[in-house]
């Protein structure tokens, strides 16, 4: 699969070409770490994260862009990683569920993110297969809108499907996260 004839050519102008079913080299930042990999052109970002980087926390529910389970953050925006090719993500900055908690060098969790804490407190999920997508969606949403109404929360998470909960607990979890993050900000402001 990696024969020379099937590898990418990169012109001086920054263009990138891979022949049919060939590969190209991409460079991107994932959870704060720079990675360079040669990937097949048809590899989705989701499969790239799961298979090439072993970041299996990102889940695939439908692989056609409806369920939202595979949502990750790309340059500060929530996106469906099943609807992005890895080659399209070349040069971008990605955050996955594995990057949400604060970890040490060995990947051990030092402290979980307020959204994770909130979802645990609110019993947000059951099987939690969909949870990574919801958490990444909520992360981007609360960055943009730190004090949303319940209606806005409903609207914003409506692109993610959950089959277990009926959503009420997830909405409660986002509301709890809003409270925790607001309290953290107040505390931060006092400290400063």
């Amino acid at each position: 699969m990696n024969s020379p004839s099937a590898t990418a050519t990169q012109s001086a102008m920054g263009s990138l070409h891979s022949p049919i079913d060939g590969t190209a080299t991409i460079e991107l930042e994932v959870n704060g770490v720079g990675v360079t990999r040669r990937v097949n052109a048809r590899l989705s970002l989701a499969d790239f994260l799961r298979e090439r980087l072993d970041l299996t926390g990102t889940h695939l529910g439908c692989e056609h862009g409806v369920c939202g389970a595979c949502t990750v953050v790309l340059n500060d925006e929530a996106v469906r990683s099943c609807l992005i090719l890895a080659v399209q993500a070349d040069g971008s900055r990605i955050t996955t569920i594995e990057g949400l908690a604060e970890t040490d060098h060995d990947g051990q969790i030092i402290s979980i993110h307020p959204i994770q804490r909130a979802m645990q407190e609110a019993h947000g999920f059951q099987c939690a297969f969909c949870a990574p997508g919801f958490l990444m969606t909520a992360l981007c949403f609360l960055e943009r809108n730190p004090a949303p109404t319940r209606a806005q929360i409903r609207e914003e998470i409506s692109g993610n499907l959950c089959r277990c909960t009926g959503y009420q607990s997830i909405i409660a979890g986002v509301e709890t996260a809003v409270e925790i993050m607001a309290a953290d900000r107040r505390e931060g402001a006092q400290d400063a």
């Binding site: 994770q116 979802m119 999920f125 939690a128």
Partner: peptide, 10 residues
């Protein structure tokens, strides 16, 4: 499960 450290069959 909330930290992406579950283990599913896939």
């Amino acid at each position: 499960l909330l930290t992406g450290r579950g283990s599913f069959v896939a």
